[in-house]
Design a binder for these strands. Structure first.
Lengths: 154, 154
DNA sequence: CTTTTTAGTTAGGTGAGCTTAACTTTATAG
DNA sequence: CTATAAAGTTAAGCTCACCTAACTAAAAAG
């Protein structure tokens, strides 16, 4: 057993080990569905964080409104996203996943995380419990961090 | 306290929470250095896994040898990668990071993982220790999995 | 020694994402 | 009511990753 790494180093090593693998899985799935990564990312955000408008797209992905508009247009054409007027502000649009969109993201998650299953069989129950707890702590901390930053902006 | 999630679900949630953030950090840094993501990814792989050849590039990134050659060419031009003949097989090329290349990746890691530090201050020492241990287990498991697959191929 | 396979490069062309600039439409300020 | 700001779209053009196809050179097979 090696000397335990410091927290930040452990997180970095894990990230580097895991990212390439994870990204590749996504890309393959998206491509198989005829979508690019940026397009699929939008679907994911809509799935996980709910409806939002065009301006949100350009902010979150750090692209111009023009680019956002074009990306979303393709998703609408493909039938994965519904784009309707915001009743509160008729300039704005509200983006929503269609049923097909939700299905796609869910299906992607199932297929893409096949390697998670492969990983799971190599670990015993006790370790898995520890890891689950650790990841939940991390996830919670990230969410708090994001909420705090959102507040600071406003 | 919510009921603990199952291992695979915890891993998925963590991934989704974290990936967007992580990728954006990389992209920004790479762009600031005048590099694209695929280019920077190659630098990372060279930094973490050591020297390899052209064929490895096209395999790992699932692109044609032609595309690999073009990507690497740009990195050579930029002075981040050294491409020399393999003495064992004069057809093959050996790719190595130059000092500038190593520096770049290290600098990227420092800047990009700024959010890790922000995360660290929100957790107490005991939790961080648990998380570190958990991530190390995960990292080890992934590495074993990869090695096994590499063997199966051969 | 000839043939075939392997490693890599070069050239030409395609497609996607992105940007700037000009525009429409709706909301807000003075 | 007019002027300005904001949300989004459209058009034109750029860049870059990627592919196919044709090529060179070295190794391996026969």
């Amino acid at each position: 057993m090696t000397k335990p790494l410091h927290f930040d180093q452990a997180l970095r090593v894990w990230t580097d080990t895991f990212m390439h693998r994870s990204m590749n899985g996504w890309k393959q799935f998206a491509k198989a569905c005829g979508l690019s990564m940026p397009q699929f990312s939008i679907l994911m955000q809509l799935h996980h964080k709910g409806a939002f408008g065009m301006s949100e797209v350009s902010e979150r992905f750090e692209i111009t409104p023009a680019a956002a508009s074009q990306l979303v247009e393709k998703l609408v054409q493909s039938g994965y996203v519904q784009r309707e007027e915001d009743p509160k502000d008729r300039r704005a649009k509200l983006l929503n996943l269609t049923d097909a969109g939700h299905d796609l993201v869910r299906r992607g998650a199932r297929e893409r995380y096949h390697w998670v299953d492969e990983l799971a069989v190599r670990l015993n129950e006790a370790d898995k419990a520890k890891i689950s707890a650790a990841l939940e702590m991390l996830t919670k901390a990230v969410k708090e961090l994001e909420e705090e930053k959102a507040l600071q902006k406003a």
